[in-house]
Amino acid sequence: MFEPRIVGFTCNWCTYAGADLAGTSRIQYPPNIRIIRVMCTGRINPEFILKAFKRGADGILIGGCHIGDCHYLEGNYKARNRYMLLKKLIEQFGIEPERLRFEFISASEGNKFANVVKEMTEEIRKLGPLNWGGGKKE
């Protein structure tokens, strides 16, 4: 069975902490996701997303604070705006936009984190591998 490879970019104050809470609460979810911690989703350079797809990610999850709660006031607004354009862009590159997902998950939402990962893993499994292949010369 195809096992999707999912990369998560989560902010230190909300989603990373929410993922930790899922752990402390022993809420189980599929092991397909590997998380990279950033201080704020506003730190996420769109180049990271494209690099991740290029390197073999089948799906990418961006997790940040709820709107209005960003630890750094405005980071998640910027991240959300970038995400909106990125979704359009990756579709033009032939990548299904469902492969890139932005969720607002707070530090107290361990359950939500686990559910999002479960859901996303299955969704990506149905979409199949991206197999970007590095775009090598033909």
Binding site: D20, A22, G23, T24, R26, Q28, P31, I35
Partner: peptide, 14 residues
Amino acid sequence: ANIREQCSWVHMHQ
């Protein structure tokens, strides 16, 4: 490397 909260504790059956 977070191999407890984000690994061993959430993939206990795998």
